[in-house]
């Protein structure tokens, strides 16, 4: 346990020291939430802007932390030889991954508090009582995105990983059901977009927080499949150096 806690402490310290990571995980989601709830440019029908945006932005926050921040930091750790050096200690892969995941979850708690707080200030009228599905969605989303982030970080060169994580972030932001409803996409893109982990996470978050009439059954299945497949791929493909 003390080994795990030592690694968790180190992970949190690295996140707190990296300004660009804090920008990605707190800054960008907050800016997007504030900006697009004030500027009426999104195709959201007759829905209140914040009511539509907040669940997607929470999905974006999970994606930012679990995939982009974790993936980029891990990629750099790999190129700096940090992972190689840790590989010669009693830490082991399982505790390393667990420490990274716990750090991600702790950061996500802070993100959720900040974003829900900002949402309430902006007039969000959702349902705060649906804690269980939100926690479940965040955990599944974290597994899925961490799996994707670590697969890229563990297989690509440092610079390529950086570009790939940022590129994927942008693609999922645009067509992954976070900022724009899927039915506003071209018809040929709608079905593939429904299979993306960001769309699935945003859907189940909307179902839990804003529109409780949505049960999101298919989205839960898509999210669960990603939560299973992506970490398995990371475990198989990850290289320490």
């Amino acid at each position: 346990m003390s080994v795990l806690l030592a690694q968790l402490k180190s992970e949190l310290r690295v996140i707190a020291r990296n300004g660009e990571q804090l920008l990605v995980i707190i800054g960008i989601p907050t800016i997007l939430l504030v900006f697009f709830s004030q500027v009426d440019v999104l195709p959201r029908g007759d829905q209140n802007a914040v009511d539509f945006l907040l669940p997607g932005i929470l999905a974006l926050a999970v994606m930012s932390t679990a995939m982009v921040s974790l993936g980029i930091a891990t990629g750099f750790e790999r190129s700096y030889g940090v992972l190689k050096r840790l590989g010669a200690t009693p830490l082991g892969t399982q505790r390393l991954v667990l420490a990274k995941c716990l750090a991600v979850v702790l950061v996500e708690v802070v993100q959720l508090l900040v974003l829900v707080g900002v949402g309430l200030i902006l007039g969000w009228r959702g349902d705060l009582g649906a804690v269980a599905p939100v926690v479940g969605a965040v955990l599944l989303g974290t597994l899925a995105f961490a799996g994707i982030g670590l697969t890229l970080a563990g297989t690509l060169r440092g610079e390529v990983n950086l570009a790939a994580q940022n590129g994927l972030y942008l693609v999922l932001l645009l067509i992954g059901g976070i900022m724009f409803p899927l039915d506003s996409l071209p018809s040929w893109l709608q079905t593939p977009a429904e299979l993306l982990p960001s769309s699935a996470l945003a859907d189940v978050m909307r179902g839990a927080l804003t529109d409780t009439s949505l049960n999101g059954g298919a989205a839960w299945i898509v999210l669960a499949v990603w939560a299973l497949v992506a970490p398995t791929a990371a475990a198989k493909l990850f290289r320490w150096q």
Partner: peptide, 27 residues
């Protein structure tokens, strides 16, 4: 193990890294 080079995150401080590694080996 002493690697030929690298192995430490550039923003990590000397005292912290040594503390961290001592903890990984159960102090």
């Amino acid at each position: 193990v002493m690697l030929q080079d690298g192995g430490v995150y550039p923003s990590s401080r000397v005292g912290e890294v040594i503390d961290h590694y001592c903890a990984l080996y159960g102090n």
